[in-house]
Computed example of a mutant assay.
Amino acid sequence: MRTAYLLVFNGLSDWEPGLAAAEINKSRDYSVKTVGFNEDTIVTMGGVSIVPDCTIDKINYNNAAIIILPGGGMWENDPVMDMVPVVEKFIKMDMPVAAICGTTVFLARHGFFEGVKHTSNGEAYLQNLVGKYKGNDLYVNKPSVSDNGIITANGIASLEFARDVLAELGIYDKDTLNVWYDFFKNPQLDE
């Protein structure tokens, strides 16, 4: 069973990775493991307390499948230098990096969008917080974009983000994934 690492930190936007994490954890091939900057209990934006399963220096890259980086104010206010080598290693080992909302600021600041189609909370959002960045000409105005192992989404596209993460990991075949997505996007409730 391979590990999907979910970064947890104080103030993380807990709703953004929820669907992806639940479906990954239900699969037979993956388990979700929370990873923090230290072992301290974190409190999400929604007030949920989480004790990280491990710290970023204890990631088992040989068993890793993906790293999921949820949004939160931290990404806008801090360069989060501790995550640069982690993301670099995932990319070097051809493992996906999934970033939603404010995490796209981190990826833009550190040059991870060079040669990669991506999205965010709007093109102006990235330009206001980062300025001109490597790959800014590859910005795509869509809810979620998956390209070259990097998945990006805006902060209100947690469903599309989950769909792209599940597709990248091959958790469902294409038809099943379409049915799953449609179930959440266009529910037909009995009256």
Rank of each mutant, 00 (worst) to 15 (best):
E88Y: 04
E88Q: 13
E88M: 07
E88G: 12
E88F: 00
K89H: 09
K89L: 15
K89Y: 14
F90S: 13
I91T: 06
I91H: 01
I91W: 05
I91V: 13
D94Q: 05
D94M: 01
D94R: 06
M95Q: 04
M95D: 07
P96Y: 13
V97W: 00
V97M: 03
A98G: 02
A98E: 02
A98Y: 01
A98K: 01
A98L: 05
A98P: 01
A99H: 12
A99P: 07
A99G: 12
A99F: 15
I100L: 05
I100S: 00
G102K: 14
G102A: 12
G102R: 08
G102V: 15
T104D: 07
V105S: 07
F106G: 15
F106M: 15
F106K: 15
L107N: 08
R109I: 05
R109E: 09
H110G: 04
G111I: 09
G111Q: 03
G111F: 10
F112W: 12
F112Q: 12
F112R: 11
F112Y: 10
F113E: 07
F113K: 09
F113W: 04
F113P: 04
E114P: 05
G115C: 13
V116S: 05
V116I: 15
K117F: 14
K117H: 14
H118Y: 10
H118M: 01
T119Q: 05
T119P: 14
T119M: 10
S120E: 06
S120K: 06
S120D: 08
N121I: 00
N121L: 06
N121F: 00
N121A: 05
E123S: 07
E123Q: 13
A124K: 06
A124L: 05
Y125E: 06
Y125K: 03
Y125C: 10
L126V: 11
L126S: 09
L126R: 05
Q127C: 11
Q127W: 03
N128P: 02
L129I: 09
L129Q: 02
L129F: 10
V130F: 06
V130E: 08
V130C: 13
V130K: 04
V130W: 02
G131A: 02
K132G: 01
K132M: 14
Y133P: 00
Y133I: 08
Y133A: 00
Y133M: 02
Y133Q: 00
Y133T: 07
G135P: 01
N136P: 02
N136C: 08
D137H: 14
D137R: 07
L138F: 02
L138V: 04
L138R: 11
L138N: 08
Y139N: 08
Y139R: 11
Y139F: 09
V140M: 11
V140S: 07
K142P: 10
K142M: 12
P143I: 14
P143F: 15
P143N: 12
P143L: 14
S144Q: 01
V145P: 04
S146L: 11
S146F: 15
D147S: 11
D147I: 09
D147W: 04
N148T: 06
N148C: 09
N148K: 10
G149N: 14
G149F: 15
G149V: 03
G149A: 12
G149E: 14
